[in-house]
Simulated assay, not measured.
Amino acid sequence: MDKEKLLAFARARLKPVTCLDEIQVLACEPGLARLQALVGEQAQNAFGNAHGGWLYTLCDSCSGLAACAGGYAHVTLQASMNYLAAGRPGDLLTVEAVSEHSGRRTQVNRVTITNQEGRLLATASFTMYRLDDKIPGLG
């Protein structure tokens, strides 16, 4: 294939991914957060499935909420994600972060994504680093 055809293909396939539109927060407390999000058109990749980067962002956001609910700002120090099945258009996804370790400076969260049928779509592990900054109203 020539370069111009490949560039045209890439331009036609790439589109903006809107990450955090219409997300519902179902639970948020220290060490636990649960979100729901619909796989809409804005969240789909070029093949019509949930975009992996969008799924990762949901997990990262959920893990951050579970960590920050303790009153201190946290940032992601390390993350690992396994994609197990595709999120399909119209799927209602539940993202849950549960703390497996909470130390003085780090928190390790296990994050899962399931669809409306309870099928496991992805698992992730996030290590969150606690900053010295207290969150106004929480810390």
Rank of each mutant, 00 (worst) to 15 (best):
D2A: 08
K3D: 09
E4F: 12
E4T: 14
E4K: 14
K5S: 04
A8H: 06
A8L: 06
A10R: 02
R11W: 01
R11Q: 03
R11T: 00
P16S: 09
V17G: 05
V17S: 13
V17C: 15
T18A: 12
C19V: 07
L20N: 14
D21N: 15
D21C: 12
E22F: 03
I23K: 07
I23A: 12
I23N: 10
A27Q: 13
C28N: 04
C28V: 03
E29A: 14
E29P: 08
G31E: 04
A33C: 14
L35H: 08
Q36M: 08
L38T: 01
V39H: 00
V39W: 00
G40S: 11
Q42D: 02
Q42A: 15
Q42L: 08
Q44H: 06
Q44A: 11
Q44S: 08
N45R: 10
N45I: 13
N45Q: 13
A46D: 11
A46E: 11
A46N: 11
N49W: 12
N49G: 08
A50T: 14
H51Q: 05
H51P: 05
W54R: 07
L55G: 12
L55C: 11
Y56A: 04
Y56K: 02
Y56D: 02
Y56G: 03
Y56M: 02
L58I: 07
C59D: 03
C59G: 13
C62N: 06
C62Q: 06
C62R: 05
G64R: 07
G64D: 10
L65D: 07
L65Y: 13
A67F: 15
A67Q: 11
C68F: 12
A69P: 09
Y72K: 09
A73C: 07
H74F: 15
H74I: 12
H74P: 10
V75K: 10
T76C: 09
T76R: 09
T76Q: 08
L77W: 10
L77H: 14
A79Q: 11
S80T: 13
S80H: 14
N82W: 05
N82F: 09
L84P: 06
A85W: 01
A85Y: 01
A85E: 06
A86E: 05
G87Y: 00
G87N: 00
R88Y: 04
P89S: 03
P89I: 07
D91S: 01
V95I: 07
V98A: 07
V98I: 09
V98C: 06
G103S: 08
R105C: 05
T106I: 04
Q107D: 09
V108Q: 12
V108E: 10
V108C: 11
R110D: 12
I113A: 15
T114M: 13
T114Y: 15
T114C: 15
Q116L: 06
G118C: 08
G118D: 12
R119T: 00
L120G: 01
A122Y: 00
T123A: 11
T123Y: 05
A124E: 01
S125T: 09
S125Q: 12
F126A: 00
F126H: 02
T127Q: 08
T127H: 02
Y129D: 01
Y129F: 14
R130M: 02
L131N: 05
D133W: 10
L138R: 00
G139W: 07
